[in-house]
Design a protein around this nucleic acid. Structure first.
Lengths: 336, 336
DNA sequence: ACAAGAATGTAGAACGCTACACGTAGAACA
DNA sequence: TGTTCTACGTGTAGCGTTCTACATTCTTGT
């Protein structure tokens, strides 16, 4: 319960210093900063000069108290899925030439983090599925501009969404595996439901039916915890009715599946084909050669950032961006 | 050049609302919030009650303007190395029961990001090497409490450091490989120098000499770009004087090396042993079975957060925490 | 030449919080 | 009974911005 006082920051250059140096009013400097109306070229020049000379940087906290902080919050469900790195790259490249800066938080229970981000005056949030509680999304959107990546249920005009067509992605996988001669195609899905998972499962089911494989439909759901995945995959691969192909909802799971299969002495794709989703950097490795669905995380991130800024700057009708996924075939799914 | 006004936030509960509801002064509420001296139990209780009732959350921007924001900045050089996820877990677990919240930024050019974080009133920063410009560290430390993970050059008492003993780590690798019968041990290092890399190279060199393998010392340096790594590894493995073991400065490179070796039809460890560093989640996979050095990223993150908070709360003498690394042997380095 | 408007600049009140400087009341001591 | 302490509360001045309201100057049309 100790009382600790906040340390005084060493003299920072403030808007007042700039104003004084440029011989203009504080308001004028602020106008230049905000690109506001009523600034002559000569004034702007003077101010910019002083700003450069003094190396002035506006303090986000102070701006936040009145208006915006030029900070966007990005919420990831976990750091370990390399797919999120792709998204982040996209976000950053969209922000490169703007005043905005993305800050990232990671948490399984997004609720806390969302509040923390709002407390910190983030101008807008990008939530990345699929770990979100659908019921709270409108709440959040009412408090802060919001864009969701990986969520298929728009609510009124409350938020924008950026997605790939998950149903189609799953269909592509089934079609591809079928074309390669596989028939008993199982799917590793996620225990925690989400609209993305629902779409992928739906696509899998529908396409299995359309390919005449309805009786082979087999969805195994488990958590993302490594141990759980191993147990589930092992159980599946050791069952008397082992499938000849396995569609995993994300690459990370697929790579784990390859590991388990390898441990069991099964070879891929001869004994079992494996397909992932997200086409992350690990797919290309010779020890994986993992066929996967590319949904272009970078593009998703870029669009999300773009939409979010638009929303912050006033747009109120929702926009929904959808990428068409494409399958990238590698050795893990070749015809046996 | 459009002028866009900041949107008005919907009525947020402020300290004033709480004060009114509790029938006390704003100052009193602030005192409770800050655990300041001179608060009776009865007053504290009243205030806490009102805070709960109104669901009050202090606004970080406003706090920041006067004191601290209870936000720590974590700077990663890249998101793709899964080792950083371990660190982040540690940081988060250290922060779990505090008011502090970590926000993360990723950037190759840390300078910009550091400024952005300071603009946003982060109370302190954790920088994760090895991508830092040593010359600017003191500058940063003079502006904001600083802890470095993966940096071996303390400067006065300016900042704390958290490290594993990289020199020892490298020595352990050489010793282990030597014990497994490998002699021509090469090292894949990073082109961009850093104190961590220097230490690992040094450990490698020294231990090679001590094991009587001085003539086999062979350090290949390349960037982290996938393409570069592939080219470098391929060149090495195709050379007439192919090493029989390869020590890679981080797991990610080791996994890439395994991929290249596999493509070339070499088997591991018969044709070439591979050892990584960081003992990340990918080491355990059956397709990698990568021997690696564990430096306990989670512990590093935890200590870094702890030290940073201490520093924020007033400590001025530097502390330097060092973890003893240990080697985790797997099949990739077994005696051929 | 004069009014009306457009363009340009400034003053100053917030924003939500912290912490300094006090005021007050009761306890402890002489 | 004073006097001195200590514990507990409060008033209020900022912190660095934004933005409304207003003042001033410059154009323009007649």
């Amino acid at each position: 319960m100790s009382e600790i006082k906040a340390p005084k920051r060493a003299g920072r250059v403030t808007i007042r210093d700039v104003a004084q140096d440029a011989g203009v009013s504080v308001a004028a400097v602020s106008k230049v900063l905000r690109n506001a109306y009523g600034v002559s070229d000569s004034l702007r020049e003077k101010v910019l000069l002083s700003m450069g000379k003094l190396n002035y940087r506006p303090l986000a906290s102070a701006r936040g108290l009145r208006g915006r902080t030029y900070t966007l919050g990005l919420l990831l469900p976990d750091l370990r899925n390399p797919f999120f790195a792709d998204i982040f790259d996209g976000v950053n490249s969209a922000l490169a030439r703007t005043q905005y800066q993305a800050m990232q938080g990671i948490s399984v229970h997004a609720n806390e983090l969302v509040d923390a981000m709002i407390d910190r005056q983030m101008d807008g949030l990008i939530l990345i599925g699929p770990n979100e509680v659908a019921s709270r999304l409108s709440d959040i959107a009412n408090r802060v501009p919001l864009v969701l990546i990986g969520h298929h249920e728009p609510v009124d005009n409350l938020f924008d969404t950026v997605n790939n067509d998950d149903q189609l992605g799953a269909r592509l996988v089934v079609r591809h595996l079928h074309a390669q001669g596989h028939r008993r195609i199982a799917m590793m899905s996620l225990a925690k439901a989400s609209t993305v998972i629902t779409q992928r499962e739906l696509g899998y089911r529908l396409e299995m039916m359309e390919q005449g494989l309805g009786t082979a439909i087999n969805i195994i759901r488990c958590s993302q915890v490594l141990r759980d995945v191993q147990v589930a995959v092992r159980k599946l691969l050791e069952s008397p009715h082992r499938p000849d192909a396995l569609f995993c909802w994300t690459d990370l799971i697929a790579i784990e599946a390859i590991s388990v299969a390898t441990e069991l002495g099964l070879s891929i794709p001869q004994d079992i084909a494996v397909v992932g989703y997200d086409n992350t950097m690990y797919c290309d490795l010779a020890q994986n050669r993992l066929t996967s669905v590319d949904q272009s995380g970078e593009l998703l991130g870029l669009q999300a950032a773009r939409l979010l800024i638009e929303r912050i700057e006033g747009r109120t009708e929702a926009e929904h961006f959808v990428v068409t996924p494409r399958i990238v075939a590698r050795a893990s799914s070749r015809r046996p």
